[in-house]
Nucleic acid binder design. Structure first.
Lengths: 127, 127
DNA sequence: CCTTTGGATAGAAGTTCATCTAATCAGGAG
DNA sequence: CTCCTGATTAGATGAACTTCTATCCAAAGG
C-alpha cells in the first residue's frame, strides 16, 4: 500500500487546486458535462465485452450520425475512450484510468451521513 | 450495509444511464466543469473551519467581484455549496452530499493497474 | 471498376456561457 | 441620517458549444 491514508475530505476539499490542475481537470469535466456524452460513456462501458460499435450507439439518440461522431471525438480527445476500426465497424471502449481520475477528485469525502465502518485508504493522485 | 456489493465498474460503466439521470448529472457536472469554479470549490473546502468568506476568494483570481459572485451562484444553484451572511461578510461552505454524488459516479472502477486488496463495497446511488 | 454502407470531417446556424461595467442591496461607522 | 465597504443583480458583449446539412474517406461486394 503506497497510498496516503486519510479519512476526511475529497482531494478537491483537502487542498486548494493549482491553476494548472484546475484547468486540466476542467477540460476533463467539460467532456463529461453533457447528457449525450454521459450516456454514450455509460453505454460503452456497460456494453457486453467492454466495447461498443458506433452502430450500437447512433440508433438510441434522436440525433444525426455526425453529431454522435462529434461527441465521441470529444470523449476521445479527453482521453476517456479509445476507438479502433475492425473491418467495417469502429469499436469504442472506456479508458478506466481517466474515469477513475475523475472519481478520485470527489470521492474520498467518505460517507457524509453515516461514516464507513473503518477509515478509507485513498490514493492521493497528483492529478 | 444496505448497499449493493461490486468489485467491477464505476456506476457510469455498469448500466446505461437513463435520459433523465444523464440530464440531471450533466447539470451538476457542468457546474464543476470550469477552472474558476473548481478552484473556488477547493478553496472553500480546504479553508480552515470548513468555510470561506467571499473576501478570501476574490483576491486570488484575476477577475472582478461580480464574476466571482456569478460563479459562486452557479455552485450554489447546483447544490454544491451553501452561503450565509454573518454581519458584513458572506461565508460559503461545501455540501458534502452533492460532492460525493459526483465521486460515486466515477469511482468504483477499482484500481485499474493494481487491484485493491479486497472487494470494495459501493453504495449504488439512485442518482 | 463501380456501388453501397459505416463513419468522420467541414462549415454554418442558433444557443449557451464567461466576463465585463453599471447599478443595487445590506451592514457598520461616524 | 449619511457615507463607506462587501456582495449581489442586471444587462451587454464576445467566445465556445451543440447541432445540423453536405461532403468525403474506408471497407466490402458485385
Amino acid at each position: 500500500m503506497t497510498a496516503v491514508t486519510t479519512q476526511c475530505c475529497a482531494p478537491i476539499a483537502r487542498a486548494p487546486l493549482s491553476e494548472d490542475d484546475a484547468a486540466d481537470l476542467a477540460v476533463l469535466l467539460k467532456a463529461v458535462a453533457d447528457p449525450v456524452r454521459l450516456r454514450l460513456l455509460s453505454m460503452i462501458g456497460s456494453h457486453p465485452g467492454g466495447e461498443a460499435c458506433v452502430c450500437d450507439l447512433t440508433g438510441v439518440f434522436d440525433l444525426t450520425a455526425p453529431t454522435i461522431s462529434h461527441h465521441l471525438k470529444v470523449l476521445r480527445t479527453a482521453g476517456l475512450i479509445d476507438g479502433e476500426r475492425r473491418g467495417t465497424w469502429v469499436y469504442y471502449r472506456i479508458i478506466p484510468e481517466t474515469v477513475s481520475r475523475l472519481g478520485a477528485l470527489f470521492t474520498p469525502l467518505a460517507a457524509p451521513p453515516a461514516a464507513q465502518s473503518g477509515p478509507v485508504d485513498v490514493e492521493l493522485l497528483t492529478v
